[in-house]
Amino acid sequence: MKKTVKLCKKPGIKGEEKYCATSLESMVDFSMSTLGKNVQAISTEVEKKTNKLQEYRISGVKKMGGEKSVLCHKLNYAYTVFYCHKLTATKAYVVSLVGVDGTKANAVAACHKDTSAWNSKNLAFQVLKVKPGTVPICRALPMDHVV
């Protein structure tokens, strides 16, 4: 819970508008205040939950909206808290997947085209062995996160 409070109090990175939402209404209000009134909320959906890790194949990709998105990440806390932020040059996609057992999923992915203001110690840079601002970073979002 201390990490959540610290993250919510910390100033955003260059070009980031951020807000810690404690209700669905406040999440919607923040999204509409930064994107306008015509918004659509999407999150990762899985046809059936399974405890085993499996292989998926991509059956389709759909781009959502334009260059602006608000990403809301569920945080650990005693009650619901979402870390919502709008970054410039971020695109959202829905990636349709089919598992080897036939399970279908629509995974939400966010692609950040400009990572130059990100912390160089970010795990994405370590895993991909790249530096901030050199390549776009895309990531799939868990089921309890919203774009």
Rank of each mutant, 00 (worst) to 15 (best):
2 K>P: 07
2 K>H: 14
3 K>L: 15
4 T>S: 07
5 V>R: 07
6 K>Q: 13
6 K>F: 15
7 L>P: 06
7 L>C: 04
8 C>A: 12
9 K>E: 15
11 P>K: 00
11 P>W: 03
12 G>S: 03
13 I>Q: 02
13 I>V: 06
14 K>V: 15
16 E>M: 15
16 E>W: 04
16 E>Q: 14
17 E>H: 06
17 E>R: 09
21 A>M: 05
22 T>H: 10
22 T>A: 10
22 T>E: 12
24 L>F: 10
26 S>V: 11
27 M>P: 01
28 V>Q: 13
28 V>E: 06
31 S>K: 02
31 S>V: 08
39 V>D: 06
39 V>Y: 07
40 Q>W: 04
40 Q>E: 15
41 A>F: 13
41 A>I: 11
41 A>G: 10
41 A>C: 04
43 S>C: 13
45 E>Y: 10
45 E>K: 12
45 E>Q: 10
47 E>Q: 14
47 E>D: 13
48 K>T: 06
48 K>F: 09
50 T>H: 09
51 N>F: 11
51 N>E: 13
53 L>R: 14
53 L>D: 05
54 Q>R: 14
54 Q>I: 15
54 Q>F: 10
55 E>P: 00
55 E>D: 11
56 Y>V: 03
57 R>L: 14
58 I>A: 02
59 S>K: 04
59 S>M: 12
61 V>P: 06
61 V>F: 13
63 K>Y: 07
63 K>W: 07
64 M>N: 07
64 M>A: 11
65 G>E: 12
66 G>D: 15
67 E>R: 00
68 K>N: 15
69 S>K: 14
69 S>H: 08
70 V>I: 09
71 L>M: 11
71 L>V: 15
72 C>I: 07
72 C>S: 15
73 H>W: 05
73 H>L: 15
74 K>H: 12
75 L>S: 06
76 N>C: 07
76 N>G: 09
77 Y>W: 12
79 Y>V: 11
79 Y>T: 13
80 T>V: 03
80 T>G: 04
82 F>V: 06
83 Y>E: 07
84 C>W: 01
84 C>I: 01
84 C>Y: 00
85 H>A: 00
86 K>G: 08
87 L>S: 05
87 L>V: 00
87 L>G: 05
87 L>N: 02
88 T>M: 12
90 T>C: 00
93 Y>Q: 03
94 V>N: 00
95 V>S: 09
96 S>I: 03
97 L>W: 03
98 V>E: 09
99 G>Q: 09
100 V>L: 08
100 V>M: 00
101 D>I: 01
104 K>T: 03
104 K>G: 01
105 A>M: 13
105 A>G: 05
105 A>Q: 12
107 A>L: 13
107 A>C: 08
108 V>G: 02
108 V>H: 03
109 A>D: 00
111 C>A: 14
111 C>L: 08
111 C>W: 01
118 W>F: 15
119 N>Y: 05
120 S>A: 15
121 K>D: 14
123 L>N: 12
123 L>S: 13
124 A>L: 14
125 F>V: 14
128 L>P: 01
129 K>F: 00
130 V>L: 14
130 V>A: 08
131 K>L: 06
133 G>A: 10
136 P>N: 08
137 I>S: 05
138 C>R: 02
138 C>S: 02
139 R>L: 13
140 A>M: 13
140 A>T: 04
141 L>C: 02
144 D>V: 09
145 H>P: 06
145 H>S: 14
145 H>K: 09
147 V>W: 04
